[in-house]
């Protein structure tokens, strides 16, 4: 198990090195040093700023040397660069955005897992029933609904229609930190959570249904029934346990990419998370922030993948002990 973990972590580190090289080549490797400095400084930068960038990032040295400085800053000083547009370190900007995106991603994941897995189990166990058809139909509906449409729909139906009648439970826009006011935080999260969750729950429902149906045909399920176990136990302890593998992989992919930014949802609800920040940085040509977000987002995908593999090993002894 420890060997397996170490190997996965080493692989993750290799991937991150490749990502940083790629990012570095894309943003630093093309054009003269002045071009690079200009790009990083953003619009209307003074001659002085450009000179200081050239100095700080060692742009006058060879590319490998520049890369080395870049990595040293990143790893030892957790320095992701400096946003001249915001006159703030990139890590500060990203540091503000991460809790928002994490609240959004984790809360939504909990909702879509509960909704998706439970409806998937129900549909699989009562295969072909009215329930099954209703869930499958709903899943198809939400699945084919673009996130921004669902977000706007929820805003219109739940926020706007309620606000018109003087009921203001959910704020339409913005984000309140969980530490400053937990209740307001919850209120600000609910609509974005459901926007993200309903679309994904559809995927999880279909995944769970398909995977559980397959597992329920396995010989060991027949054994569980032959043992005289209650049907509920057969389904959950014996069936669902084995059918979680594809669900967990999907969750890893989804969470990994979501942390990189739930761009649409954050934009619709005006929440300054990573996705929203990425979009505004592109508009502002705030290149250092974009680079920072790319690295953080790749890091989260890598970490999510390692977590998924650990979870596999916990779930399936054949992976653990192979």
């Amino acid at each position: 198990m420890a060997r397996f973990l170490l190997r996965r972590i080493a692989q993750g580190i290799v991937v991150m090195i490749l990502v940083t090289i790629l990012v570095f080549l894309i943003f630093f490797g093309s054009g003269s040093q002045i071009d690079v400095a200009r790009r990083l400084a953003g619009r209307n930068a003074s001659q002085q700023t450009i000179a200081s960038i050239t100095h700080r990032l060692h742009l006058n040295e060879s590319l490998p040397a520049q890369y080395w400085h870049f990595v040293v800053q990143l790893v030892w000083h957790h320095n992701l660069g400096y946003s001249y547009y915001h006159t703030q370190p990139v890590s500060t900007i990203i540091g503000h955005a991460i809790p928002i995106t994490l609240s959004l991603a984790i809360g939504a994941a909990v909702i879509w897992l509960v909704l998706g897995v439970l409806s998937g189990v129900t549909a699989a166990v009562r295969r072909g029933s009215v329930m099954d058809r209703v869930f499958t139909g709903l899943a198809l509906f939400f699945y084919s609904l673009p996130t921004f449409v669902l977000g706007l729909l929820l805003l219109f139906l739940v926020y706007f229609q309620l606000a018109k009648r003087g009921i203001r439970i959910f704020p339409g826009q913005g984000y309140t930190g969980i530490t400053s006011n937990p209740l307001k935080w919850l209120e600000s999260m609910i609509l974005p959570w459901f926007t993200l969750a309903l679309v994904s729950a559809a995927t999880y429902m279909r995944l769970t249904r398909g995977s559980l149906l397959e597992v329920l045909g396995e010989d060991y399920i027949r054994t569980a029934r032959a043992k005289g176990l209650p049907e509920r136990r057969v389904i959950f302890r014996h069936g669902l346990r084995s059918s979680l593998t594809p669900v967990v992989s999907q969750l890893g992919i989804d969470l990994g990419t979501l942390v990189g930014g739930a761009i649409v949802t954050e934009t619709v609800f005006g929440m300054p998370g990573l996705g929203y920040t990425a979009v505004t940085s592109i508009t502002n040509q705030d290149l250092p922030v974009i680079i920072g977000i790319v690295i953080v987002a790749s890091g989260s995908v890598v970490v999510a993948n390692i977590l998924v593999d650990i979870f596999y090993a916990v779930l399936d002894p054949r992976v653990r002990l192979h």
Binding site: E218, D219, Y220, R222, T223, A224, A226, H238, R241, S242, L315, D316, P317, R318
Partner: peptide, 15 residues
């Protein structure tokens, strides 16, 4: 009434 089946590997739960 107890039962045993043909393929003992797939008949036991792998997890």
């Amino acid at each position: 009434i107890a039962m045993i089946f043909q393929d003992p590997l797939s008949s036991l739960h792998p997890f």
